[in-house]
């Protein structure tokens, strides 16, 4: 009885492994590559035939002529896509407040004349360390700086922001947002 049961257990495990662990993912892979090849391969953005990144994975922007994304807690290289992580700092942790202060300082130093309040997203690290998006508020906060440093009119940059904004699904699912990489690619395209 015991041996028969063990044999059933082992053979069912191995056959299920074949079915669920090999056949099923291969079927999904085949169907995905057929139906949604762009998404299945990482939603890559190409420029002049070369991949410059993924629309879904943020990049590290520190040059004040670009829009900056969310702070990334990945170290030593922020936005290292092989090491996704959040900061995991608790709300009372002094290290969190120190990090916030440093980010405020960097934002103010890059744009001394900007008196707008800083949106929380620009001083708080994302959940993945790879967040591709910022909110319209975070983009608007940086519009003046980007326009000034690139010699563009503020209205031009604001129009660019407006044209890249993605709204909430059905008005109540998710948050309004912009993909930072696409926004910056469009900025480079303005020249």
């Amino acid at each position: 009885m015991m041996m028969r049961s063990l044999r059933s257990a082992l053979s069912l495990l191995l056959l299920m492994t074949l079915l669920l662990g090999v056949v099923y993912p291969l079927i999904v892979t085949g169907a995905a590559q057929l139906l949604f090849p762009r998404q299945a391969n990482g939603s890559l953005i190409e420029r002049d035939g070369k991949a410059v990144g993924s629309a879904l994975i943020g990049q590290d922007f520190t040059d004040p002529r670009y829009f900056w994304g969310r702070p990334s807690a990945i170290s030593p290289h922020p936005y290292d896509a092989t090491a996704s992580t959040a900061s995991n700092l608790g709300p009372l942790n002094p290290a969190l407040i120190d990090a916030v202060k440093a980010r405020i300082q960097a934002l103010r130093a890059a744009d001394p004349g900007n008196a707008l309040p800083i949106p929380v997203e620009l001083v708080s690290a994302s959940g993945s360390g790879l967040d591709p998006d910022i909110s319209p508020a975070a983009a608007a906060f940086q519009a003046g700086r980007v326009a000034r440093l690139r010699g563009l009119k503020l209205e031009q940059v604001e129009a660019l922001i407006a044209s890249h904004e993605q709204r909430r699904l059905l008005g109540f699912i998710g948050e309004p947002r912009l993909i930072v990489l696409e926004l910056n690619l469009a900025l480079d395209g303005l020249h």
Binding site: A86, P117, S126, A137
Partner: peptide, 21 residues
Amino acid sequence: QGIDQLASATQSGGNMEGKET
């Protein structure tokens, strides 16, 4: 620290540490 955490039409606000936009 003077950070804007208020929800508005253009941001979710709130405690965004560790959250995705």
